[in-house]
Each structure stands twice: as C-alpha cells, then as structure tokens.
Amino acid sequence: MSLLFEEIDSQDSPLGEISLRKRRIPAFGDREIYEVKLGEEFLMSSMFVEAEEALSDLGLAQVKGDNLSVVVGGLGLGYTAVAALKDERISEQLVVDALDTVISWHQKELVPLGKILNADTRNRYVLGSFFDLATDPSTGFDPTSAGKKFDAILLDIDHSPTEFLNPSNAGFYTTENLARMADQLKPKGVFAMWSQNPPEESFEALLKTVFETVDSHLVSFPNPFQGKDSTNSVYVCIKK
C-alpha cells in the first residue's frame, strides 16, 4: 500500500458502505488528511474544517449564561464537537450520530480528534438518529434524562436544508418538526446549522416561523484544489 494513501476502515451501514481514509498530498506538505466517504461520495475531509468549527463558534457566541448543556448533531471527524468544548462554559455535551461505525472510530481513536473527545469528561456519545430524537421532545436527546432541555443544538448532518444525506431526513425541515426540536431548547436557546450552500431565503423564512431571530453567516476558507476560496454557511437561530 502506498505511504500516500491508507484505508483505515470500511464498514456497511444503513446508508451504504462508509469508509475512513488517510492520505498525504505532497504538494500540500507533510500533513495527514483524513477523509470519510459514503459509497463513492466524499462526506468530509480534514482539509476543510473552518465552517464546521464556525458552526460551534457562531452558535455558542449567541448563548447566554454558564453551565451550558449542548447537543451536537453529527459527529463526522469531530471538528464541531471539539470546537464547542473549547467554550469553558459547557458542562456537558451530547454528540448524536446514527452510525455506530463513526462513533467507534473516535472511541478507538482512529481519527486524531477522538483522543480529545474521549479525554474530556464533559463529552458523551449518543448512538441514534438526530432527526428521530429531535422530533420527539417527550424523550429527547439524552437517553438518561427524558425531556431534558438544552442551551444549544448544533447540527451538521445534511449537505444543506434542501440536499439530504438520506432522503428520509427531508421531513425534518418543516415548521412542525423544527418546533418540536425547539421545544428541547431552554428559553432563548440557540439552534445553529451548517450548510454547504449559500444561505437560502426559503429556509430562512421557514426558520422564522419557529425562532425569534434568524441570522445567516457565510464562512470563507481556502480551497487549494481550486486555487481560490470556497464558502459554506451557518444559520444561527434564537428561540422565541
């Protein structure tokens, strides 16, 4: 196997084969680049993490108070979760992911940020569908505390509010289901969501049917493959 490429793990999942890979690209220096693929589709790369970190930074900047309880929807390579834990006000963080394979990569520390998440006693992994848990406020996100409310929910699962990792996720993006999720936030709690696309006016309008304030942020980051900056967006909403 080439020293420039290694497939660390590959497993079947309900969404198809998911694989974790590591590579070096000499033109970009001696850094190790971690990638996750679902089938033939690239889901994420450690080359591009600025927007995932900005999801935490922008979302938590709008949360008031201390002793915060936070939900991160979607574990991925761990960048959103680790960025959130840099906020010393957080007392507990639940990272929800539907794929036990992805959680095990972190528990076994096959990805670099697994060691950080495992060592932080505030962090806890929850195996389950974010969308199922989000739309059942009577049970909620915490399997040890039904109906618990949180200060912030940070979501990074679908490609955008109109492009879904799984077609079944589409049903989440309605006033009814967003309101069910918002029921799990404390008063003035924050919901923030990542998207690979520029802000969409139709989604902003939908969010405004549930939340008191809705702000969209365009996050720019260098893309060496294209020789220019790329952009993602982050929606930040405050509960009524």
Rank of each mutant, 00 (worst) to 15 (best):
P143K: 06
T162S: 12
Q62R: 15
L75S: 02
Q11K: 15
W105K: 06
L133G: 02
D9G: 07
F131W: 00
K240H: 10
T101P: 05
G147V: 00
S138V: 10
P198K: 05
E41T: 14
G78K: 03
D215W: 06
V234Q: 00
K108G: 02
G114D: 02
R23W: 08
E40K: 12
F130V: 09
S13V: 05
G39M: 06
D158F: 09
K240S: 13
S230A: 15
P224G: 04
L75G: 01
T209G: 00
E40M: 06
E204N: 11
E109L: 11
P137L: 04
A182Y: 01
V234K: 00
M1E: 13
F5I: 10
D229G: 05
L77T: 00
L55H: 03
F191D: 01
Q107L: 11
L15Y: 10
G65E: 15
R23Y: 08
F5E: 12
A134P: 06
G78F: 01
V236N: 01
L185Y: 06
V82Q: 02
A182E: 03
E17Q: 13
W105V: 08
D215A: 12
E7P: 05
S145N: 05
E176N: 09
K208G: 09
P112M: 06
N67E: 12
V126S: 02
F203S: 07
A119T: 07
Y79R: 04
S160R: 04
K208S: 15
I33A: 02
F42P: 02
L94G: 03
